[in-house]
Design a protein around this nucleic acid. Structure first.
Lengths: 225, 225
DNA sequence: GAAGCGAACCTTTAATCAACCTTAATCCCG
DNA sequence: CGGGATTAAGGTTGATTAAAGGTTCGCTTC
């Protein structure tokens, strides 16, 4: 369970790190908004502890940005007294909870557990959207303009990867890593096969979304006008 | 975007190479300090990943040397636990960041992006601009005044090099190093061919940017009035 | 400063090679 | 057995390289 702390008061960040590590979380701490954003965008964290007042980029902007990128990691905001309006703004922007400084260790841990539990119950990104298509990663159903069809698991995983990475080009290696695991021996051809299947289904649905090949680089989704 | 790895554990170097290549960086890896220094002095790299404990010449000395030569390439040090004093020494000598082994892929990539951004480099996801043209190095699309066309990988890499080096003249050797790797046997003619391709595409786009030949020196971009 | 020469450069083309797409067969596991 | 996963293979496209002929440029010589 990996937690990212974005907090400019170094002492507080240190203290939080210690507390969380003692409670068997993996912790990274950074001290400004830009670095926090860079880390958060990696998507490797299970939870973010986010201060609002931050140098370089404030917490609200950071939060908006990662939500805009489709990252659904739970976020708990750390707020000082008198930042109530900021707190509300944060919740509006997709924060899951907030905790007012100063707070007790017990309260912090409880809220973290709660946030993680909420995440575990409601599978994040259940309905993924891009252009005019919508993918339900639980039921593996892909729908577009009323029409709907079922994908098989690998198709869904592959499309999910493309949809969450949005504008970024995704290499076959990354796809293999996601669908078959880190040091799998699977051939590139395997990816190509599923890309082909997906294209066929997108065509069938008359979707305005297509999978673009960037030869010798990878694939990227494109929503056509 | 070209990265040099100086790391004596061959397995780790291999793994890093794979990870970075998957993320569309060009990568060279060497396994001792002296070779690392020789490569780094070429100045063709956009970032160095530098281990501290190295045979022949340690990372700190290497770092001091290249900084003494005026090379400002961002450097991220790879440190093991218990090398804290070395880490501090490294930061004092001009390292930009450090990352403690073991580290996650996401963390590594985030720190690389952060280091490149701090140095004012254009992060690979971004669109590069020069004059009235814009190059997306991820999707390999070159656009100008609404028009857009696709480049192939080598064209894009070549143009990227020209665009990032802006007013500086770039030699064919540098281009070969960037496009085909450090000790490639590729002929100059090969560069000329791609320069030719690029010129044709720039003309097609009606771009006010052209590639200028500096005979027996190299090429440079020029934005015309 | 004109002529001549060679080096560097430009462009096009064609052959080769690698990447990619698709279909279909096969494998595997519940 | 049946659905999904994987592999195999042929065809197609596109990328890369090498080669060759033509052009420009800079230098030397007269």
């Amino acid at each position: 369970m990996r937690i990212l702390i974005v907090e400019d008061e170094v002492h507080l960040a240190e203290a939080l790190t210690q507390i969380l590590k003692k409670n068997h979380y993996s912790v990274d701490a950074v001290h400004d908004g830009q670095t926090g954003l860079d880390n958060a965008l990696s998507g490797i964290y299970d939870l973010l502890l986010l201060d609002i007042m931050l140098p370089v980029m404030d917490g609200i902007t950071l939060l908006k940005t990662i939500r805009g990128e489709g990252i659904a990691t739970p976020v708990i905001m750390l707020t000082a007294k008198g930042e109530i309006s900021d707190t509300i703004a944060g919740l509006d922007c997709g924060a899951d909870d907030y905790i007012a400084k100063p707070f007790s260790t017990g309260e912090l841990l409880a809220r973290i557990r709660a946030a993680l539990r909420r995440k575990g119950e409601v599978v994040p990104e259940d309905g993924l959207k891009f252009g005019d298509i919508e993918l339900n990663t639980s039921t593996l159903k892909l729908s577009c303009k009323g029409k709907e069809l079922k994908l098989i698991l690998k198709e869904s995983e592959l499309l999910e990867l493309l949809m969450t990475r949005k504008q970024a080009v995704t290499s076959k290696e990354q796809m293999i890593e996601k669908l078959w695991g880190f040091d799998s021996e699977v051939e590139h051809n395997n990816v190509e096969v599923y890309i082909s299947f997906l294209r066929k289904k997108l065509t069938f649905l008359n979707a305005s979304v297509r999978i673009n090949t960037i030869r010798s680089v990878g694939y990227v989704l494109e929503a056509m006008p």
